[in-house]
């Protein structure tokens, strides 16, 4: 048999490979163009940085069957209301600090990173911080020097990462802002700190 089937021929598969690759890539570009605006800062899913002026909670949604972030009453971070630029500057300092201190190589953020330490997606809402009155101070103290704060029977501790007071405030702002992102219910069944007055 000298002629092989067209569907088993090299040229057919070369063309198919090109078309499939091109098609998938174009589809991905289109999806990206649709997604990026939906996750840009200030969108419904990813709130503006000034959201740190408000109470953020994580509540069960009857229609979506998972918990979703809810933005509530005014509750400025560190008791000081910030305008949009100031809020962005603070969160940016925090994000830069998390990158330059390499947080992601112990923790996960939005579930991505390393598994040596707890997920930080909703850490702003963690019951670990005690009450909502002491939370901010607790967080600042912890971030600046966790080395003497062991909270598990294994003795696993976070190292002291030379984080300044201002950087620590940035990190807390970043964590508060991150907890307001709509992550489709991740983490599931999360048990929040008590925030109602």
């Amino acid at each position: 048999m000298a002629t092989s089937q067209w569907w088993a021929s090299e040229s057919f598969w070369r063309k198919t490979a090109i078309w499939v690759t091109g098609g998938s890539f174009i589809a991905l570009i289109l999806l990206t163009m649709d997604t990026i605006p939906q996750i840009s800062t200030g969108s419904k899913r990813v709130p503006a940085y000034s959201v740190i002026n408000y109470r953020i909670s994580y509540k069960f949604d009857e229609t979506r069957h998972v918990q979703v972030p809810v933005i509530g009453a005014k509750e400025p971070l560190f008791g000081k209301e910030l305008n949009e630029e100031e809020a962005e500057a603070l969160v940016k300092l925090g994000k830069l600090t998390t990158q330059s201190k390499n947080c992601m190589n112990c923790h996960t953020l939005l579930g991505n990173g390393a598994y040596y330490a707890p997920d930080l997606t909703k850490s702003w809402l963690d019951q670990y911080w005690g009450t909502k009155e002491v939370r901010e101070v607790q967080m600042l103290e912890f971030i600046k020097d966790p080395s003497d704060k062991v909270h598990n029977s294994m003795g696993r501790r976070m190292p002291k990462l030379e984080i300044t007071d201002e950087e620590a405030r940035g990190v807390v702002a970043f964590l508060k802002w991150m907890s307001s992102i709509d992550t489709n219910g991740f983490p599931y069944n999360f048990k929040s700190i008590e925030q109602e007055n």
Binding site: E10, W13, R14, T16, A17, V20, T21, S24, F25, A27, L28, D34, T35, Q38, I39, R45, V46, L110, G111, N112, I181, D182, T183, N184, G185, F186
Partner: peptide
């Protein structure tokens, strides 16, 4: 090789979606 390219890219490029469940991206 062409068959694999077609199948790999055809499934793998949009397979990227399995990382976009929980990072804020739409449902």
């Amino acid at each position: 090789l062409y068959i694999e390219v077609a199948l790999m890219f055809g499934s793998g490029i949009l397979g990227l979606g399995h990382h976009y469940f929980w990072i804020g991206t739409p449902e």
